[in-house]
Protein backbone atom coordinates (compact mmCIF):
# COMPACT_ATOMS: atom_id res chain seq x y z
CA UNK A 1 0.00 0.00 0.00
CA UNK A 2 1.41 3.40 -0.89
CA UNK A 3 -1.01 5.10 1.39
CA UNK A 4 1.52 5.54 4.19
CA UNK A 5 4.10 7.02 1.85
CA UNK A 6 1.56 9.59 0.75
CA UNK A 7 0.81 10.53 4.30
CA UNK A 8 4.44 10.91 5.06
CA UNK A 9 4.91 13.18 2.08
CA UNK A 10 1.96 15.24 3.15
CA UNK A 11 3.37 15.57 6.64
CA UNK A 12 6.55 17.02 5.25
CA UNK A 13 4.93 20.10 3.86
CA UNK A 14 5.19 23.04 6.20
CA UNK A 15 1.46 23.64 6.30
CA UNK A 16 0.78 20.12 7.42
CA UNK A 17 3.42 20.40 10.09
CA UNK A 18 1.86 23.60 11.34
CA UNK A 19 -1.58 22.12 11.44
CA UNK A 20 -0.17 19.07 13.22
CA UNK A 21 1.41 21.26 15.87
CA UNK A 22 -1.78 23.24 16.18
CA UNK A 23 -3.73 20.04 16.57
CA UNK A 24 -1.39 18.86 19.28
CA UNK A 25 -1.70 22.15 21.08
CA UNK A 26 -5.50 22.06 20.83
CA UNK A 27 -5.58 18.48 22.10
CA UNK A 28 -3.39 19.44 25.02
CA UNK A 29 -5.48 22.49 25.73
CA UNK A 30 -8.69 20.46 25.61
CA UNK A 31 -7.24 17.99 28.05
CA UNK A 32 -6.06 20.84 30.24
CA UNK A 33 -9.37 22.61 30.17
CA UNK A 34 -11.35 19.45 30.72
CA UNK A 35 -9.62 19.14 34.06
CA UNK A 36 -11.60 20.97 36.76
CA UNK A 37 -8.31 21.69 38.52
CA UNK A 38 -6.94 23.56 35.50
CA UNK A 39 -10.20 25.37 34.95
CA UNK A 40 -10.33 26.61 38.53
CA UNK A 41 -6.70 27.72 38.31
CA UNK A 42 -7.28 29.69 35.13
CA UNK A 43 -10.39 31.27 36.59
CA UNK A 44 -8.62 32.39 39.76
CA UNK A 45 -5.68 33.68 37.81
CA UNK A 46 -7.98 35.67 35.53
CA UNK A 47 -9.52 37.29 38.61
CA UNK A 48 -6.11 38.36 39.85
CA UNK A 49 -5.22 39.56 36.35
CA UNK A 50 -8.27 41.81 36.39
CA UNK A 51 -7.27 43.07 39.84
CA UNK A 52 -3.80 43.92 38.62
CA UNK A 53 -5.18 45.74 35.58
CA UNK A 54 -7.73 47.86 37.40
CA UNK A 55 -5.19 48.76 40.08
CA UNK A 56 -4.24 51.75 37.88
CA UNK A 57 -7.72 53.24 38.02
CA UNK A 58 -8.35 54.35 41.64
CA UNK A 59 -5.43 56.79 41.90
CA UNK A 60 -6.74 58.47 38.74
CA UNK A 61 -10.12 59.05 40.38
CA UNK A 62 -8.71 60.71 43.46
CA UNK A 63 -5.07 61.00 44.64
CA UNK A 64 -6.39 59.93 48.04
CA UNK A 65 -6.61 56.43 46.58
CA UNK A 66 -2.90 56.19 45.84
CA UNK A 67 -1.76 52.98 47.60
CA UNK A 68 1.39 54.43 49.18
CA UNK A 69 1.05 58.19 49.40
CA UNK A 70 -2.70 58.72 49.26
CA UNK A 71 -4.13 59.50 52.67
CA UNK A 72 -7.75 60.18 53.41
CA UNK A 73 -7.61 63.58 55.15
CA UNK A 74 -10.63 62.74 57.29
CA UNK A 75 -9.29 59.50 58.69
CA UNK A 76 -6.33 59.17 61.03
CA UNK A 77 -6.72 55.61 62.28
CA UNK A 78 -7.67 52.22 60.95
CA UNK A 79 -11.34 52.13 59.98
CA UNK A 80 -13.57 49.35 58.71
CA UNK A 81 -15.22 49.05 55.31
CA UNK A 82 -17.33 51.98 54.12
CA UNK A 83 -18.75 53.28 50.86
CA UNK A 84 -15.71 55.46 50.39
CA UNK A 85 -13.20 52.79 51.33
CA UNK A 86 -14.56 49.40 50.32
CA UNK A 87 -12.19 47.45 52.52
CA UNK A 88 -11.50 50.19 55.04
CA UNK A 89 -8.25 52.06 55.66
CA UNK A 90 -5.01 51.37 57.46
CA UNK A 91 -3.88 53.34 60.51
CA UNK A 92 -2.58 56.18 58.34
CA UNK A 93 -5.84 56.51 56.45
CA UNK A 94 -4.66 54.81 53.27
CA UNK A 95 -7.22 52.87 51.28
CA UNK A 96 -6.83 49.09 51.74
CA UNK A 97 -8.68 48.19 48.56
CA UNK A 98 -6.22 50.02 46.31
CA UNK A 99 -3.34 48.52 48.26
CA UNK A 100 -4.81 45.10 47.62
CA UNK A 101 -5.20 45.80 43.89
CA UNK A 102 -1.65 47.09 43.61
CA UNK A 103 -0.45 44.03 45.51
CA UNK A 104 -1.80 41.84 42.70
CA UNK A 105 0.31 43.77 40.21
CA UNK A 106 3.43 43.38 42.34
CA UNK A 107 2.77 39.68 42.90
CA UNK A 108 2.49 39.06 39.16
CA UNK A 109 5.57 41.10 38.47
CA UNK A 110 7.68 39.41 41.11
CA UNK A 111 6.31 35.93 40.54
CA UNK A 112 6.58 35.84 36.79
CA UNK A 113 9.90 37.63 36.42
CA UNK A 114 11.62 35.69 39.20
CA UNK A 115 10.22 32.42 37.91
CA UNK A 116 11.24 33.27 34.36
CA UNK A 117 14.78 34.09 35.43
CA UNK A 118 15.16 30.99 37.57
CA UNK A 119 13.82 28.88 34.71
CA UNK A 120 16.31 30.44 32.31
CA UNK A 121 19.18 29.77 34.73
CA UNK A 122 17.93 26.32 35.58
CA UNK A 123 17.34 25.25 31.99
CA UNK A 124 20.68 26.58 30.77
CA UNK A 125 22.64 25.01 33.60
CA UNK A 126 20.69 21.76 33.37
CA UNK A 127 21.25 21.48 29.60
CA UNK A 128 24.93 22.32 29.89
CA UNK A 129 25.47 19.87 32.75
CA UNK A 130 23.58 17.09 30.99
CA UNK A 131 25.14 17.72 27.61
CA UNK A 132 28.72 18.30 28.72
CA UNK A 133 28.77 15.49 31.28
CA UNK A 134 31.86 14.52 33.27
CA UNK A 135 33.54 17.24 35.36
CA UNK A 136 31.27 20.07 34.29
CA UNK A 137 28.24 18.00 35.17
CA UNK A 138 29.60 16.93 38.55
CA UNK A 139 30.69 20.44 39.50
CA UNK A 140 27.42 22.07 38.47
CA UNK A 141 25.33 19.45 40.21
CA UNK A 142 27.30 19.67 43.47
CA UNK A 143 26.81 23.42 43.29
CA UNK A 144 23.10 22.86 42.76
CA UNK A 145 23.04 20.49 45.75
CA UNK A 146 24.63 23.15 47.89
CA UNK A 147 22.06 25.76 46.96
CA UNK A 148 19.27 23.27 47.37
CA UNK A 149 20.05 22.56 51.03
CA UNK A 150 20.13 26.25 51.87
CA UNK A 151 16.82 27.67 53.08
CA UNK A 152 16.17 30.19 50.30
CA UNK A 153 14.23 32.70 52.38
CA UNK A 154 16.94 32.94 55.02
CA UNK A 155 19.76 33.18 52.47
CA UNK A 156 18.04 35.98 50.65
CA UNK A 157 17.43 37.67 53.98
CA UNK A 158 21.10 37.42 54.91
CA UNK A 159 22.22 38.69 51.52
CA UNK A 160 19.75 41.52 51.77
CA UNK A 161 21.26 42.60 55.06
CA UNK A 162 24.82 42.30 53.75
CA UNK A 163 24.16 44.25 50.58
CA UNK A 164 21.96 46.91 52.11
CA UNK A 165 18.98 48.60 50.57
CA UNK A 166 16.59 46.42 48.60
CA UNK A 167 14.48 47.28 45.64
CA UNK A 168 11.98 44.96 44.08
CA UNK A 169 14.25 43.93 41.18
CA UNK A 170 17.09 42.95 43.47
CA UNK A 171 14.64 40.84 45.43
CA UNK A 172 13.53 39.22 42.18
CA UNK A 173 17.12 38.54 41.17
CA UNK A 174 18.00 37.06 44.55
CA UNK A 175 14.94 34.78 44.50
CA UNK A 176 15.83 33.63 41.00
CA UNK A 177 19.42 32.95 42.01
CA UNK A 178 18.34 30.59 44.73
CA UNK A 179 15.48 28.79 43.03
CA UNK A 180 17.09 27.28 39.94
CA UNK A 181 18.60 23.99 41.20
CA UNK A 182 15.35 22.01 41.23
CA UNK A 183 14.69 22.96 37.61
CA UNK A 184 18.20 22.22 36.47
CA UNK A 185 18.04 18.71 37.96
CA UNK A 186 14.96 17.84 35.96
CA UNK A 187 16.24 19.44 32.77
CA UNK A 188 19.57 17.70 33.21
CA UNK A 189 18.01 14.28 33.42
CA UNK A 190 15.86 15.02 30.38
CA UNK A 191 18.93 16.18 28.49
CA UNK A 192 20.75 13.01 29.46
CA UNK A 193 18.01 10.86 27.98
CA UNK A 194 17.75 13.04 24.88
CA UNK A 195 21.48 12.68 24.35
CA UNK A 196 20.97 8.95 23.86
CA UNK A 197 18.52 9.48 21.01
CA UNK A 198 19.75 9.00 17.46
CA UNK A 199 18.74 12.43 16.20
CA UNK A 200 21.39 14.09 18.37
CA UNK A 201 24.04 11.82 16.87
CA UNK A 202 22.71 12.61 13.43
CA UNK A 203 22.97 16.32 14.11
CA UNK A 204 26.51 15.85 15.32
CA UNK A 205 27.48 13.82 12.29
CA UNK A 206 25.96 16.51 10.11
CA UNK A 207 28.44 18.91 11.65
CA UNK A 208 26.24 20.91 14.01
CA UNK A 209 28.10 22.81 16.70
CA UNK A 210 27.48 22.14 20.38
CA UNK A 211 25.64 25.44 20.64
CA UNK A 212 23.41 24.52 17.76
CA UNK A 213 22.66 21.08 19.16
CA UNK A 214 21.81 22.52 22.54
CA UNK A 215 19.58 25.29 21.28
CA UNK A 216 18.05 23.75 18.17
CA UNK A 217 17.69 20.13 19.19
CA UNK A 218 17.65 19.85 22.96
CA UNK A 219 16.00 23.08 24.02
CA UNK A 220 12.72 22.54 22.09
CA UNK A 221 12.39 19.15 23.73
CA UNK A 222 12.92 20.27 27.28
CA UNK A 223 10.87 23.44 26.90
CA UNK A 224 7.51 21.94 27.94
CA UNK A 225 9.03 20.66 31.17
CA UNK A 226 10.62 24.07 31.79
CA UNK A 227 7.22 25.73 31.31
CA UNK A 228 5.68 23.35 33.79
CA UNK A 229 8.33 24.16 36.34
CA UNK A 230 7.85 27.83 35.73
CA UNK A 231 4.31 27.71 37.13
CA UNK A 232 5.61 26.06 40.29
CA UNK A 233 8.43 28.57 40.56
CA UNK A 234 5.99 31.46 40.27
CA UNK A 235 4.32 30.08 43.36
CA UNK A 236 7.49 29.89 45.37
CA UNK A 237 8.73 33.29 44.19
CA UNK A 238 5.50 34.96 45.29
CA UNK A 239 5.72 33.25 48.67
CA UNK A 240 9.36 34.22 49.23
CA UNK A 241 8.71 37.83 48.27
CA UNK A 242 5.67 38.00 50.52
CA UNK A 243 7.61 36.47 53.40
CA UNK A 244 10.47 38.92 52.93
CA UNK A 245 8.06 41.83 52.88
CA UNK A 246 6.29 40.43 55.91
CA UNK A 247 9.57 40.39 57.80
CA UNK A 248 10.21 44.02 56.84
CA UNK A 249 12.62 43.46 53.97
CA UNK A 250 10.36 44.53 51.13
CA UNK A 251 10.89 47.35 48.68
CA UNK A 252 9.85 50.45 50.68
CA UNK A 253 8.60 52.16 47.52
CA UNK A 254 5.94 49.64 46.61
CA UNK A 255 3.11 48.03 48.45
CA UNK A 256 2.80 44.28 48.37
CA UNK A 257 0.48 41.89 50.14
CA UNK A 258 3.29 40.72 52.40
CA UNK A 259 3.93 44.31 53.36
CA UNK A 260 0.27 44.88 54.18
CA UNK A 261 0.48 41.92 56.53
CA UNK A 262 3.62 43.34 58.07
CA UNK A 263 1.87 46.65 58.72
CA UNK A 264 -1.13 45.03 60.35
CA UNK A 265 1.16 42.90 62.48
CA UNK A 266 3.72 45.54 63.46
CA UNK A 267 1.15 48.23 64.21
CA UNK A 268 -0.65 45.79 66.50
CA UNK A 269 -3.92 45.90 64.57
CA UNK A 270 -4.17 42.16 64.01
CA UNK A 271 -6.66 41.68 66.82
CA UNK A 272 -8.74 44.75 66.06
CA UNK A 273 -8.84 44.91 62.28
CA UNK A 274 -9.83 41.66 60.59
CA UNK A 275 -10.77 43.71 57.50
CA UNK A 276 -7.09 44.51 57.28
CA UNK A 277 -5.67 41.13 58.30
CA UNK A 278 -7.79 38.84 56.13
CA UNK A 279 -7.70 40.14 52.53
CA UNK A 280 -3.93 40.17 51.85
CA UNK A 281 -3.46 36.69 53.30
CA UNK A 282 -6.37 35.31 51.28
CA UNK A 283 -4.96 36.91 48.15
CA UNK A 284 -1.45 35.49 48.61
CA UNK A 285 -2.85 32.05 49.32
CA UNK A 286 -5.24 32.10 46.37
CA UNK A 287 -2.76 33.39 43.81
CA UNK A 288 -0.24 30.73 44.77
CA UNK A 289 -3.05 28.19 44.68
CA UNK A 290 -4.06 29.26 41.18
CA UNK A 291 -0.54 28.89 39.78
CA UNK A 292 -0.19 25.60 41.56
CA UNK A 293 -3.46 24.28 40.14
CA UNK A 294 -2.43 25.31 36.64
CA UNK A 295 0.88 23.57 37.14
CA UNK A 296 -0.80 20.36 38.21
CA UNK A 297 -3.18 20.43 35.29
CA UNK A 298 -0.25 21.04 32.93
CA UNK A 299 1.56 18.13 34.49
CA UNK A 300 -1.30 15.90 33.52
CA UNK A 301 -1.16 17.12 29.93
CA UNK A 302 2.61 16.76 29.67
CA UNK A 303 2.95 13.44 31.41
CA UNK A 304 0.69 10.90 29.73
CA UNK A 305 1.30 8.46 32.56
CA UNK A 306 -0.75 10.68 34.85
CA UNK A 307 -3.74 10.64 32.54
CA UNK A 308 -6.77 8.88 33.79
CA UNK A 309 -6.76 6.01 31.36
CA UNK A 310 -4.87 2.85 32.11
CA UNK A 311 -2.89 0.96 29.54
CA UNK A 312 -4.52 -1.56 27.31
CA UNK A 313 -3.81 -5.17 28.18
Amino acid sequence: MNFSAETRAACNTAAAKRSYNLQRFLDGWALFYENPVGKLGVFLLACFGVMALISYIPPLIDPMYHPMTGVDPWISNATGPSAKHWLGTDNLGRDLFTQLLTGARIAFMVGISAAFMSIVFGTLIGMIAGYAGRVTDAALMRFADMIMVMPSLLVVLLLASLFGQLNIWIIVLLIALFRWPGVSRVIRSQTLSLKQRPFIDMARVAGASHMRIIFRHILPNVLPMACLYMTFRVTSAIIVEAALAFLGFGDPNTVSWGMMLQWVWKTGHMFQAPYWLLPPGICISLITLSFYLIGRAMEEVLDPRLRKEENFE
Binding site: K308, E309, E310, N311, F312, E313
Partner: peptide, 21 residues
Amino acid sequence: ESGCGKTTLGMALLRLLPSNG
Protein backbone atom coordinates in the same frame (compact mmCIF):
# COMPACT_ATOMS: atom_id res chain seq x y z
CA GLU B 1 0.13 -10.45 18.87
CA SER B 2 0.42 -7.86 21.61
CA GLY B 3 -2.74 -5.86 22.10
CA CYS B 4 -5.04 -8.61 20.87
CA GLY B 5 -6.68 -9.02 24.26
CA LYS B 6 -5.10 -12.23 25.48
CA THR B 7 -3.77 -10.83 28.74
CA THR B 8 -7.07 -9.07 29.34
CA LEU B 9 -8.77 -12.41 29.01
CA GLY B 10 -6.48 -13.97 31.62
CA MET B 11 -6.98 -11.09 34.01
CA ALA B 12 -10.74 -11.23 33.61
CA LEU B 13 -10.80 -14.85 34.76
CA LEU B 14 -9.24 -13.79 38.07
CA ARG B 15 -11.29 -10.59 38.12
CA LEU B 16 -8.13 -8.50 38.13
CA LEU B 17 -8.91 -6.14 35.27
CA PRO B 18 -7.57 -2.59 35.54
CA SER B 19 -10.02 -0.16 37.06
CA ASN B 20 -11.32 1.03 33.69
CA GLY B 21 -11.84 -2.47 32.35
